[in-house]
Amino acid sequence: MVTLSINGQQVQGVDGSSILEVAREHGIEIPTLCYHEALEPYGGCRLCVVELKAPRGPRLVASCVYPAEEGAVVETDSEIVHRSRRMTAELLLGAAPNAKVIQALAARMGVEKPRVSLSDNNCILCGLCVRACREIVGANAISLVNRGFTKEVSPPFEIGSNACVGCTTCVFLCPTGAIKLEEVLANRSVHHWDSDFEAVACKICGDHYLAPELAVDVEKVLSEENA
C-alpha cells in the first residue's frame, strides 16, 4: 500500500494504482474523458490533470497515468488545475461544439463560448474506440492515423475493414456520438468505418445481432458447454 495526501486528506492506495484510481476510491471527483476503467489509461484528454506538489513539484500531471507514489502531495481542486481544465474544455468546445458531453463539460468549467472555433467534428480523439477494439474485442480494426490536427480514427488505409466484427463496442463507448450504428433488420453497419455486413440471426429469438465471425466462436463455446 502507498499513502499519499490528496487535497490535504491522507489516503491509501494499492501499489501500482494511479492517482485517479486512488482519488475515486476515496470519493474524490476528477473529471475525465478519455479514461475508462476497463481500458489502459491513455493520458490524452488532460482533463484529469491534478497538481502534484511533491515530489518534484509543483506541476500538473495527468492523474489517470501518473502513479500514486508514497508521500505524494496532490491537489485536485486548486486554481492552476482549474485554469488548465478550463482551457482544455474551451479548446474541446471549439473543436466539437455540437457534442453534448463537451457542452456539459464546458458549462461545468464555466466556459460559455470558445474564443477560437477550430472545427465541428464530434470526434474528440479520446481513443476509447481504438483501445476497446484492441484490448477488449481483440479485433484491432481501427487505429489512430495521421498527426496533429489531421489525426483521426480510421480502419487501415481508410478502407472498410473486415477485421471489424460489428460488435459495436466502439459505438457504445464513444462519448460524443461520433460513431454511429445503423441497423436495418439483417444488416448492421458502423458508418464511421464503412463496415457493413449481414448479421447472423439468433436461433431462439430470431433477431439479427451477431457478426458472422463471432457466430463461429459462439457456436464453439456453446458446443463445449453442452458437451
Partner: peptide
C-alpha cells in the same frame, strides 16, 4: 509545431492550432 504535433493530447493538438489561428 501544430503540423508536427502527434495529436494525442488536447492542449498540444488543439491549443497549438488555436494559437496558429490567432
Amino acid at each position: 509545431v501544430q503540423q508536427e504535433s502527434c495529436g494525442k493530447c488536447v492542449p498540444c493538438r488543439l491549443g497549438t492550432r488555436a494559437m496558429l489561428d490567432v
